[in-house]
Design a protein around this nucleic acid. Sequence first.
DNA 1: GAGGGGCGGTGAACAGTGTCAACATCGATG
DNA 2: CATCGATGTTGACACTGTTCACCGCCCCTC
Lengths: 198, 198
Amino acid sequence: MAARTTYHHGDLKAALVEAGVAAAREGGEAAVGLNRLAAGLGVSASAAYRHFPEGLEDLLVAVGDVARRRLVERLALRISEVPPSRDAATDARRRFRASGRAYVEYVLEEPGLFQVANRHDRGRLPDADPFGVLESCIGDLVSAGVLGEARRPDAATAAWAAVHGLAVLLTEGPLRRLPPDRRDRAVQRTLDMVEAGL
Amino acid sequence: MAARTTYHHGDLKAALVEAGVAAAREGGEAAVGLNRLAAGLGVSASAAYRHFPEGLEDLLVAVGDVARRRLVERLALRISEVPPSRDAATDARRRFRASGRAYVEYVLEEPGLFQVANRHDRGRLPDADPFGVLESCIGDLVSAGVLGEARRPDAATAAWAAVHGLAVLLTEGPLRRLPPDRRDRAVQRTLDMVEAGL
DNA sequence: GAGGGGCGGTGAACAGTGTCAACATCGATG
DNA sequence: CATCGATGTTGACACTGTTCACCGCCCCTC
């Protein structure tokens, strides 16, 4: 933002994280550097080290936390948008599928944020844990009788692997230049596979 | 390696790639730097630019090509090791599964190489294309009648996504500290899902 | 065999990075 | 008001990738 006039910044930490998020959105991890961000805020680079003791890695983790939090917000939103029906089983199935679609949707919207979310995770803020959302969906599937109790172990891991792998391949990987229609087909096909195979 | 005595190196390009592979094996992408590698070979940093016009990125792609080639070699090996039976269908299924297991196996052995293989791909050396191997396995499944022709489109993509995602989560991702037995369970579970859901 | 061309090396330099230690300043607290 | 801790600055260091002008060496040709 604008250069400041006071000696102290006020809330440099938050400002750096915000700037880091903005930088990551365009340019991914490579774009978030301590010197550049600090300079952009009209602040010395070493000032950042007061707020991020481990240096750059700390900042990247903080940016990743924001990215993960936004991801779970998106998942929750799309899950909540599923219209309830009479059948708990189809409801659980639809919510499960909606979560998978939302995952890919978010990653395609914010590939840069997704990148740093993956690469810099100290893990386990409860409100920034996409795996938890998936597990809860799986729990619903079990409760609704769609998924047998015996099949529960590692079900969330397997489903996550499929969706996450697809997201990686579509954004950073060899599938990154797939045209949108073929991309959608691939997403549908993958979600079909997960639903049928779990 | 040792410092050289002659003015010309002989095959600096190959030597740099080799050193890059060695560096990537321990330390991943971050460990392969042009200056360090050149210095390690007793050579000036700028000498490398004769052989890698685009600079570091070129070298990383070359290292990635080696990694990809080794991966498809591993896949081919494990596929070839599947003992043939009387039933073409179970053969195809076993080979398909073997390829998935081999993928994760290789990635767990060489996480550093896998990292640069993913991040630096200009794609499509025919002998360094793991996706091609998977597609051929899927072709066998179709030929053997295990997979209907209608289900063929994007089947390889979906399967790849699952296995690749699992590999990423297990090496660079949140599942990276999973104990080996739970890791194996997750692999089995994911392959089961793919096999049942394709 | 003598000479040139060019491939493949050198050294210095530049911009930029992360990081740290010593110093300066402000706001709040005794 | 004086002090002190939190916060920002300056300057430096060791790296990084990259480019440039220069030059040593080998091979090919005359």
